[in-house]
């Protein structure tokens, strides 16, 4: 069974981000990029499933410009077999729904048993590509998966999915799309041997024309959502008021603030 993992390259999360002069995108100058943290769980899960069944290939797929090859190389160094970059100037400026359509166009040309992805990209934060991708592929999906068990016959899977206030236990027929929640597993590090092997691997590049995609159906022309303006969040004014004194004094003042200022008691 072949497993495809959809990944995205995102800014490393400990950095603050700057808005570019046009005000509609993040400035990429000096940013360090990594694999979207949730996608690492998806890659790890794919590798574990392959190891369990001793068959099939794990292929990474990303849509994006040249710089995204670094993310693909990292995933290859973790142990993925192949990497595909859906790369075309026509794809630039695609919104999440269009991204799902492009990923689906590629996956439809492949034989897949499973598609895995992170539950959301930590830059765009839309949490919608895996679900939309599943719809375009005509297969079921399960989101925010923190435990995944395939049946021995690989025709179905049982997933534990995180919901607000608990866990849903879901059975799902395969093929299907699963989006990974943190806690699904502990992603392995890139090994030295893996890094060496990753350097030698070819990354396959696929264009819009090769996927038979109509240029009007990709990129900003196809967008249903447009980012008009980015701004920084309002910064809290006034600074912090330190509650000084001995323990009894601190507690008395805090209780007063909770009761009179915030009215929570």
């Amino acid at each position: 069974m072949n497993i495809f993992v959809c990944i995205k390259q995102v800014p490393e999360t400990s950095q603050s981000v700057k808005i570019d002069p046009e005000g509609t995108a993040i400035s990429l100058d000096g940013l360090e990029f990594v694999i979207n943290p949730f996608d690492e769980y998806a890659i790890e899960e794919a590798l574990r499933i392959k190891e369990r069944f001793h068959e099939g290939k794990v292929t990474l797929v990303t849509m994006g410009p040249e710089r995204c090859q670094k993310a693909l190389r990292s995933g290859l160094a973790m142990g993925a077999d192949d990497a595909v970059q859906l790369s075309d100037p026509l794809f630039d400026g695609s919104d999440p729904l269009t991204t799902a359509r492009i990923l689906a166009a590629f996956l439809k040309t492949q034989e897949f048993g499973l598609v895995l992805a992170g539950k959301q990209a930590v830059d765009d934060d839309s949490s919608m590509v895996p679900q939309a991708l599943a719809e375009y592929l005509g297969v079921p999906h399960v989101c925010t998966v923190k435990k995944l068990e395939l049946a021995d016959d690989k025709k179905s899977a049982t997933a534990h999915r995180e919901i607000d206030g608990g866990t849903e236990v879901v059975t799902c027929r395969l093929p299907a799309v699963f989006s990974a929640e943190k806690g699904l597993n502990e992603p392995r590090y890139e090994s030295l041997k893996g890094k060496m092997a990753a350097k030698k691997k070819q990354i396959r590049s696929v264009s819009a024309a090769e996927l038979g995609l109509d240029p009007a159906k990709v990129g900003p022309r196809a967008a249903t959502v447009k980012v008009c303006k980015l701004s920084y969040p309002e910064v809290k004014q006034g600074g912090v008021r330190m509650i000084e004194g001995d323990l009894a004094g601190q507690v008395a003042e805090t209780t007063k603030i909770l009761r009179e200022g915030l009215k929570v008691i």
């Binding site: 800014p11 999360t13 603050s16 981000v17 808005i19 993040i26 930590v122 830059d123 765009d124 934060d125 959502v225 447009k226 980012v227 008009c228 303006k229 980015l230 701004s231 920084y232 969040p233």
Partner: peptide, 10 residues
């Protein structure tokens, strides 16, 4: 977006 590091008007 970016967990609130920026805010987008869309």
């Amino acid at each position: 977006m970016n967990a609130g590091k920026v805010v987008a008007m869309v």
